[in-house]
Design a protein around this nucleic acid. Structure first.
Lengths: 216, 216
DNA sequence: AGCAAATACAGGAAAAATCCTCCTTTGACA
DNA sequence: TGTCAAAGGAGGATTTTTCCTGTATTTGCT
């Protein structure tokens, strides 16, 4: 076999990535897999995806700082539609699974699976183009006609605002710092409250921390 | 070398455990390490620790279902005081680190470290009996000298208040929930602002998360 | 060219949060 | 037994946040 299957890993835990590489290589008796690169988060992924060679399969975590898995997948679909994404996470929430499936990922597995299942997933994606675990298939089956989850994409300004919102500053001060009117800031706030499904600045700040937009 | 160093892994993510095993074996050119067993959580650990042989070093995660790392370490100290625990987690919270160090763990490393550091940690524990990462040493040092941390003690009510303050609830709702007057709540707020050196509810909420008083 | 988003901003009202000063009760304790 | 401290609370002023309804400009796409 001449063409190796090129794989990329996106996960914020170095130790997990390194371990995963070993696991992949161990089960790869025919030397078919080639780890192309690793990335800490979505931002680093974007960097690496600027120039060829591109991976065939990307193993992606969801919960990462800065740019999370959802954003990353969305970006990938727009810019590298042919890359197959295998989501690999500890989130079992139906909403998360569904959202990922809707975005067109090729597989969804839980981090707490057997090594053989990981290999099976890779094999299946390489051979058939997809792999759905029991749980994911279940969700997919029961939700063929569900609700639509808009992916949460934040603009640069929104990121900046949300970061400043997670401080002691008043909105007036935030506005000054961003060289915008308080009223514009109010607009950002309103929009984000709706999109992020929070009701007060307090929970907005917590969202910021949770998603790595603000430091603790 | 006749006596191998017996190691046990306690982490709820199978894939992480398996990967870790590979990483440990890879860097173990002299075949000194022997993976004795794995456990999903503290309960399983207790099972395995019922009968010999016992591990020399236990690599332990904190965040696990049922019985977490804190409980497990406490139990270990009581029942197997000679087993060396190397905590390996994604929590960087000072409070968590300090608590673990106080309980006598022999090492504290972040999951997002280099493979070499993992090996260094194992080597060090095997050889010297302990290994503290930069972060952990820092925390330990600052707390021995009491430079930065005044031992801010929070009463039970204050804990409850601060936890509720880190939500979408208004102070009126918090007051109702705690069966206190809004004015009393206002008193708690005022006092905590001063003691914790924050100026708004937003930063109070962030303090709560940082110190593990509220979940994200 | 035409139209839908996205961006920036206003006025004004209502609700919450913040800040200050001043009580009452209760229990520890010198 | 008098004093002091901590917990719970009141009233009222001021600032911030939140909410609602509109408008003008720019920008991407068809």
């Amino acid at each position: 076999m001449i063409n190796k299957i090129k794989i990329a890993l996106v996960d914020d835990h170095n130790l997990f990535r390194k371990g995963l590489i070993k696991l992949i290589n161990i089960g790869d008796s025919k030397q078919r897999y080639d780890i192309l690169f690793e990335a800490d988060n979505g931002n680093q992924l974007k960097e690496k995806m600027k120039t060829p060679p591109f991976p065939d399969i990307i193993l992606m975590d969801i919960d990462m700082p800065e740019v999370d898995g959802f954003e990353s997948v969305e970006w990938l679909q727009r810019t590298h539609g042919d890359v197959k994404v295998l989501v690999m996470t500890m989130l079992e929430k139906e909403a998360a699974i569904l959202r990922m499936l809707r975005m067109g990922v090729k597989g969804y597995i839980h981090k707490d699976i057997e090594v053989e299942d990981l290999h099976a997933a890779l094999e299946s994606i390489a051979a058939n183009g997809f792999y759905y675990s029991e749980a994911a298939s279940e969700v997919l089956h029961q939700n063929l006609n569900g609700l639509s989850n808009a992916p949460i994409h934040l603009s640069e300004k929104e990121r900046e605002f949300i970061k400043l919102a997670a401080t002691d500053m008043t909105y007036q001060q935030v506005a000054d710092k961003m060289n915008l009117s308080v009223k514009t800031i109010d607009g950002y706030r309103e929009a984000l409250f709706r999109r992020l499904n929070v009701k007060t600045r307090v929970t907005l700040a917590l969202y910021a921390v949770k998603h790595g937009l603000a430091e603790l």
